[in-house]
């Protein structure tokens, strides 16, 4: 079987909700039925057939040829299979995904990987604000899985994260890991102001000292750390990083003591 390919014919005239186009929801559907799915979010009410040219037939291997910042909610809630976007994605790409693999070869908009619970989301370019974070009103952000951003991430990456791993390789905006409940956030390339702001538990692992920390973080020494060695080796083995991030004895700051105070910010000395 050949990958089920959606080729973008022209720039969409409106924002699109692509959440129906996941491996689970397309399984067993005929091409003409797929073409009739409404995805437009304005009065245009575009259907799949108006926006994309469809080829291939394997719903477990979906490819979007050509991207746009108007392609929202890509692969939302997917549980298995693979979705690849050759281009940019809009808001909420991979939101609430539970399994499978989503690859975005361009940039992703805000709330990429929001509340994901499993699977692997890899963004080759940059990600917008609120990476992995909850939408307004939701209590927890990312809850499992692996989220990799090869470029930069915006502000509030890993906000309210609870479980899983987020790795941002070319720096993040302000307040990375804010309000973290648990989980692991890796940022190489520098963070903005006050990473870990109001974090309860969890680990923020950096490749350099943060330029600022909330004053309710406290210095906690730099003993030799087997955890750092295990994480470094894991990141390299997974192809996320090429060289160790933390080294043998990273500096630890504990916080945020304005809340529970059991989180940590680690970086090489």
């Amino acid at each position: 079987m050949k990958p089920l390919t959606f080729t973008l014919v022209a720039e969409p005239p409106e924002r699109l909700d692509l959440s129906p186009l996941t491996p689970e929801r397309l399984a067993g559907m005929e091409r003409r039925d797929i073409e009739k799915i409404q995805i437009g979010m304005s009065k245009h009410g575009s259907k799949v057939g108006d926006i994309f040219r469809i080829a291939g037939n394997d719903p477990l291997d979906i490819v979007f040829e050509g991207g746009s910042t108007r392609l929202d909610r890509l692969a939302e809630g997917m549980r298995g299979g693979s979705v690849r976007v050759v281009g940019n994605a809009g808001a909420q790409a991979g939101r609430a995904m539970r399994g499978g693999k989503l690859t975005i070869e361009g940039n992703a908009g805000p709330h990429a990987g929001s509340c994901m619970r499993g699977g692997r989301l890899e963004i080759m370019g940059n990600a917008g604000d609120h990476l992995g974070a909850p939408l307004a009103g939701e209590l927890a952000g990312m809850n499992g899985g692996v989220l990799i951003v090869r470029g930069k991430a915006g502000a509030f990456a890993a906000d309210r994260m609870r479980r899983g791993l987020i790795a941002v390789l070319k720096g993040s905006g302000d307040n990375a890991g804010s309000r973290m409940i648990a989980g692991t956030l890796v940022v190489a390339g520098g963070t903005g102001e006050m990473p870990g702001y109001l974090m309860r538990r969890g680990s923020i692992l950096l490749d350099r000292a943060p330029k600022s920390l909330s004053s309710s973080f406290v210095e906690c020494g730099a003993p030799e750390s087997v955890f750092a060695a295990v994480v470094d080796r894991h990141l390299i083995a997974e192809g996320i990083l090429k060289r160790p991030l933390l080294g043998k004895a990273p500096q630890k700051y504990g916080g945020d003591n304005a809340v529970l105070g059991m989180g940590e910010v680690l970086f090489p000395r």
Binding site: A182, T184, R201, S203, F227, V231, H234, M262
Partner: peptide, 9 residues
């Protein structure tokens, strides 16, 4: 109470 749980890979 100061133990930390971590899931790695």
């Amino acid at each position: 109470g100061w133990q930390i749980s971590k899931k790695i890979g």
